[in-house]
Amino acid sequence: MLLAIVGQVAGLHYLRSVFYRMAGDLTNAEAELTREVNGLPEDDRRRAHFQEMLVKLRSKAPPPIAGG
């Protein structure tokens, strides 16, 4: 819904990641947060914060399925 309204804006994938995490979908939560980090300029002050969140998210996520 928000994507259709606001278009691609910094922070959108972070928000989607938050809601995926709330819905218990850690795989998509990680994917969205990774998109957010990758879309930020190298010197963006939010990058370190998001990367720290990504590490925490990965520590909670189930291990990837071998060969999957």
């Binding site: 606001v6 959108l12 928000l15």
Partner: peptide, 12 residues
């Protein structure tokens, strides 16, 4: 307003 909320991390 919504764009500012998303980019300012307050849409949450």
């Amino acid at each position: 307003r919504l764009r500012r909320k998303v980019s300012g991390m307050t849409a949450y």
